[in-house]
Amino acid sequence: MRRTAPLVVTFVVGVIMVGEYFIPHYRYRMITAELIEWGLVLAAAAFVLGLINLVQVNLPKVIRREQDWAYKLVMLIALVCTITAGALGGKDRLGDGQIYKWIFDFLFTPLNATMFSLLAFYIASAAFRAFRARNVDAALLLGAAVVVMIARVPIGESIPVIGDYLPKIMNWIMDVPNIAARRAIFIGAALGAVATGLRVILGIERSHLGSDG
């Protein structure tokens, strides 16, 4: 029962969802829309489950004052403050003067942008060390990257002779070879998604049910 019930649920729900493509009737759509809503609710609940797990793991370490306990304490305080501010704000939480909006504007947004911008230094440093035009493949990789980077800054256009053509070459690379390769990857990924979806629905793929599933 512990193994069969989840497999039956997987099959029934999967077949109903796939059926929507073949039965484009509004009553059937209402059923699938309801199932998707339940799925969204479960996904939201999974965030709370993750939160419980985070507190279960970190709180004992703070209480026992294990290594790096102060950082974990800061994380838990920030977590509690953000959730409390959001709960107090309710549906107006992103309105002017709300604490939650203040947290979003002056903590979340700048920290998020800075974390991603930090990667610029590491990507550039890694590229400097790794990009060597040793063969044709590497030379094409390097050339395409350089053209795209130079063409997107004002200094690129001021280079004599090729300056006028750089943005056009960049657009060609982005629109033709890049699209060709990306489409090939998308088509491959779509075939993989269809195959994996079928395996899940038919119960061949069971890894999501745990090791003894």
Binding site: V41, A44, A78, I83
Partner: peptide
């Protein structure tokens, strides 16, 4: 760690008000 706490809290709040 401050960023981690704020972003997890933000995700939970938005999941609650957006879906639950």
């Amino acid at each position: 760690h401050l960023f981690l706490g704020v972003s997890i809290g933000y995700s939970v709040v938005e999941a609650y008000f957006g879906a639950f």
